[in-house]
């Protein structure tokens, strides 16, 4: 673009300074031009505006789970039974590849909200339907490479490195949450 021409024969210091300033100015211009192109690839304003979803918890009975789409990905909302909560609390941290207490993963004990995306390579784990396999720990089982998640959505066995991600959510009433 604006190659301001380094002097051929070694010019006077004044000429080199002028060349330097001009080239620097031009370089700033080129950098400034590049930014809008990169920024245009970031999520646009209408995509950002659709960043949250509301879920009605009323119809979900105890022991049941629903899957909702949020930002293009599945979110598992499970209404946990007392037994499931107790099982999650009773696990010693040494048995967890990614240690995290159950209390830190839920806002209200009986409602578990996790991103339904296996932290290994991104498949959707099974366990939402009553007929699904739930793995050895009563939570979810990922059929792609055999990761097992427990009733708190934590990884227990298999290649996945991290627990199922907890998305940002808030209770806007006793029976409604807003995710994102």
């Amino acid at each position: 673009m604006a190659d301001s021409g380094e002097a051929t024969a070694g010019g006077t210091p004044r000429r080199d300074f002028l060349n330097l300033v001009t080239t620097a100015f031009a370089a700033v211009g080129v950098g400034a031009v590049a930014w809008p192109f990169i920024a245009s690839m970031q999520p646009s304003r209408d995509v950002l505006a659709l960043a949250s979803t509301e879920v009605d918890l009323g119809p979900i009975a105890e022991g049941q789970a629903v899957t909702v789409m949020w930002r293009g990905k599945p979110v598992f909302v499970r209404h946990r039974t007392a037994a499931e909560i107790a099982a999650a609390r009773a696990v010693p941290p040494s048995q967890l590849p990614d240690p995290q207490p159950d209390q830190a993963r839920v806002q209200r004990d009986q409602w578990l909200v996790v991103l339904g995306v296996c932290t290994h390579l991104g498949c959707v784990p099974l366990g939402q339907k009553p007929t699904d396999a739930r793995g050895d720990y009563g939570g979810w089982f990922c059929p792609c490479h055999g990761s097992h998640y427990d009733t708190s959505g934590r990884i227990r066995k298999g290649p996945a490195p991290r627990n199922l991600v907890i998305p940002q959510y808030a209770f806007i009433s006793d029976t409604k949450i807003r995710i994102g």
């Binding site: 809008p36 192109f37 920024a39 245009s40 970031q42 646009s44 304003r45 209408d46 995509v47």
Partner: peptide, 10 residues
């Protein structure tokens, strides 16, 4: 023009 960042410019 409205939603893409710098879309109007491009």
């Amino acid at each position: 023009m409205r939603d893409v960042n710098y879309g109007w410019l491009i």
